[in-house]
């Protein structure tokens, strides 16, 4: 091993100084490669499975609104994912808009305003909120949230229908608004956790300086929140990505109808809820499975872009605040 090309390659890794280190690194490389392989396999599968529908419809599969499944006649089939892509982005945006004030308040309340004695049990509650399976949220959305959103949305649509958001009278509680609210509830603890972590890293001296200048508590909170702004952005971005990928809870409350509407009181569909509801039948058609994988490719792209950006952004900020050079 010594002096060979492999050894020279391994020696270039920082922290590898001896043959013992080389062996150690070599032994641990497969685990790291597994992670790389998983991402590549996912990308490969989604591209390979999307090819049939893309080669038939071209990019219309992403921009068309028609969803036509015809059994036994592949030539008549046509799949447009735009309503689902629109629904994914729309519901996730609603979720982030609602989750933003909630998660910032939750983070500040836990870090700043909760008495020390209560902090433990309260943070256990938020941990539990993040650990609660999405299917449980879905169950609650289906049995409680949707039926209780219905009268509110009906009232809004009959009294404020001049606002495009409420232009359609809801036919049930299973609407875009319900999905947005449910997603907001689900993603708040995650965004709050990101914000909290950054907030707790701010040096005590800054807080002391602000108080010594006579700042009120709220003013101190404002100053500190200004400092963790990047973490708020990153936390909400992660919440958005999470909402885009959320499947079972959304598919139980959104109503699953392929429409594009600005009205949140109407039912809709998201890419993942479309996959969840259609995948079981997709085998009966020639191109539907491929179309659903093409939808997966869209969430893949959104998820990857948002995640990488958020993680990178946070790391940069952490390095700046903590004064650690990369």
């Amino acid at each position: 091993m010594n002096g060979g090309p492999l050894s020279r390659l391994l020696r270039r890794v920082r922290g590898v100084r001896s043959r013992d280190d080389e062996r150690f690194l070599l032994l641990h490389l497969p685990a790291s490669l597994t992670l790389l392989l998983v991402i590549l396999a996912m990308l490969g599968v989604f591209i390979a499975y999307s090819i049939p529908v893309i080669s038939r419809e071209g990019f219309h599969v992403f921009t068309d609104t028609t969803w036509r499944a015809v059994e036994g006649d592949p030539q008549a089939e046509w799949y447009g994912l735009l309503p689902a892509i629109y629904g994914s982005v729309y519901t996730s945006l609603i979720a982030v808009l609602i989750a933003a004030p909630l998660s910032v308040s939750l983070a500040v309340a836990l870090e700043e305003l909760t008495p020390r004695r209560l902090r433990g049990s309260l943070s256990l509650l938020t941990d539990l909120m993040a650990a609660t399976p999405t299917i449980i949220y879905g169950l609650w959305g289906l049995a409680f949230l949707a039926p209780h959103m219905y009268p509110i949305l009906s009232w809004l649509s009959s009294h404020a229908s001049w606002i495009p958001l409420f232009s359609k009278h809801p036919s049930s509680g299973y609407t875009i608004a319900t999905a947005g609210v449910l997603l907001a509830v689900m993603s708040t603890p995650f965004a709050a956790a990101v914000i909290r972590e950054a907030y707790s890293m701010i040096p005590l001296s800054i807080r002391e300086a602000a108080y010594s200048l006579g700042a009120t508590r709220l003013e101190v909170i404002r100053i500190l929140l200004g400092m963790v702004k990047p973490s708020i952005v990153a936390g909400l971005a992660l919440a958005f990505a999470r909402a885009v990928g959320e499947t079972v809870a959304v598919s139980l409350v959104i109503g699953n109808s392929m429409t594009i509407t600005p009205s949140v009181t109407d039912s809709g569909v998201t890419v993942s809820s479309l996959i969840a509801s259609q995948f079981g039948n997709a085998g009966f058609y020639h191109y539907m499975t491929s179309a659903l994988f093409a939808g997966g490719l869209v969430i893949f792209a959104i998820g990857l872009a948002v995640n990488v950006a958020a993680v990178w952004y946070m790391k940069k900020w952490e390095e700046k605040v903590m004064g650690v050079a990369p």
């Binding site: 790291s32 992670l35 790389l36 998983v38 991402i39 396999a41 996912m42 599968v45 989604f46 390979a48 499975y49 992660l238 990505a241 999470r242 885009v244 990928g245 959320e246 499947t247 993942s272 996959i275 969840a276 659903l292 994988f293 997966g296 969430i299 893949f300 998820g303 990857l304 995640n307 990488v308 993680v311 990178w312």
Partner: peptide, 21 residues
Amino acid sequence: LLALTLVEFPTILVGLTVYAV
């Protein structure tokens, strides 16, 4: 970075990938 990215990846995509393979 790979692990952090995968942590937040939509789990439905993992399911679809394993289905395909």
